[in-house]
């Protein structure tokens, strides 16, 4: 150590200029300025915002209508259920499709076509889908569920095939070598490797979808969003304020539970098998 610091200093090569960073930052600033001008934001209104916020807050929370609470919780529960069912519907389509989008499982042409399907689905926002489904299924949670289901296929599928493409090819080779069929190779060579991540991303998508499903009520697709929209429109700020609290608390509670489950899935379960040694055992799940 001491001999290292005692030796004469060495000359580093001259530092390269990070042109890429400079270009990106410039583009960022320019785009922001340009957008701000073109959308005609009334920046002066920002100054009045704190006062407006205060008035709204007072209207909402000076006299909270607690008798509405159980109805609002019921509607939030509807929103959560819509998100869950929609996510599961998306998974039913996204999982098989993602196998068809993974280049290590199928040929390039099939993978390419499947990916384009995902890209198209991903490009359509859930609210637009809900607007299409409301006339078809009426002002009901059905429209919301389908909007979430169809809207999540693309992004789930994309995440899923990226996970599948990253798996170790060794176990697949081993299933081939024992004379397994294509389905068996999928079942034992692929799925055990991806099941924890897939389940975890499914839950994560569910958490995102709870937010989406609260919004979808605004266009009449069921759930708590409808109440929020109506009460604000009819200036029933007391109910709107309570609904907001229900949405926030409900979302946080479900996020927390879902996050804990995700953590447990990826970490696996540890058991003590009496050798002062911990083993992680099969978590079951999809595998």
């Amino acid at each position: 150590m001491s001999s290292m610091s005692a030796s004469p200093p060495v000359q580093l090569p001259s530092k390269p200029r990070d042109t890429f960073k400079i270009v990106v930052s410039t583009v960022f600033v320019v785009l922001f300025g340009w957008s701000a001008i073109s959308v005609d934001i009334k920046w002066s209104r920002l100054l009045e915002a704190p006062a407006d916020m205060y008035r709204l807050f007072k209207a909402m929370y000076s006299d909270i209508p607690w008798d509405e609470l159980s109805r609002l919780i019921g509607l939030m529960w509807d929103s959560i259920a819509m998100a869950w069912i929609g996510t599961l519907i998306a998974a039913v389509f996204a999982i098989p499709l993602s196998f068809l989008a993974a280049e290590n499982l199928v040929g390039r042409p099939i993978a390419w076509v499947t990916r384009q399907v995902f890209n198209v689905l991903r490009a359509v926002p859930e609210v637009i889908l809900a607007l299409l489904f409301v006339p078809m299924f009426g002002l009901s949670p059905m429209a919301g569920v389908l909007a979430i289901g169809v809207g999540s296929i693309g992004s789930l599928g994309k995440l899923f095939y990226e996970i599948i493409e990253n798996i170790d090819s060794g176990p697949i080779e081993a299933t081939d070598a024992v004379g397994a069929s294509r389905l068996q190779r999928l079942r034992w060579g692929v799925i055990p490797q991806v099941a924890p991540e897939l389940t975890s991303f499914l839950l994560y998508r569910f958490e995102i979808n709870i937010r989406a499903s609260s919004v979808l009520g605004v266009v009449g697709a069921g759930g708590i969003g409808g109440v929020l929209a109506d009460t604000v429109r009819f200036k029933e700020y007391g109910v709107a304020g309570l609904a907001l609290i229900v949405v926030i608390v409900g979302t946080i509670v479900v996020d927390t539970i879902s996050g804990a489950i995700r953590h447990r899935i990826v970490a696996g379960r540890t058991i003590d098998i009496g050798e002062a040694q911990k083993y992680v055992v099969d978590t079951g799940g999809l595998s």
């Binding site: 397994a180 069929s181 034992w188 595998s287």
Partner: peptide
């Protein structure tokens, strides 16, 4: 080795019975 790490030893060995 080419084992499926995320499943049990027994499930790995049972792969020998797939056919």
């Amino acid at each position: 080795f080419n084992l499926v790490d995320r499943t049990t030893v027994l499930n790995n060995v049972l792969m020998g019975r797939l056919h």
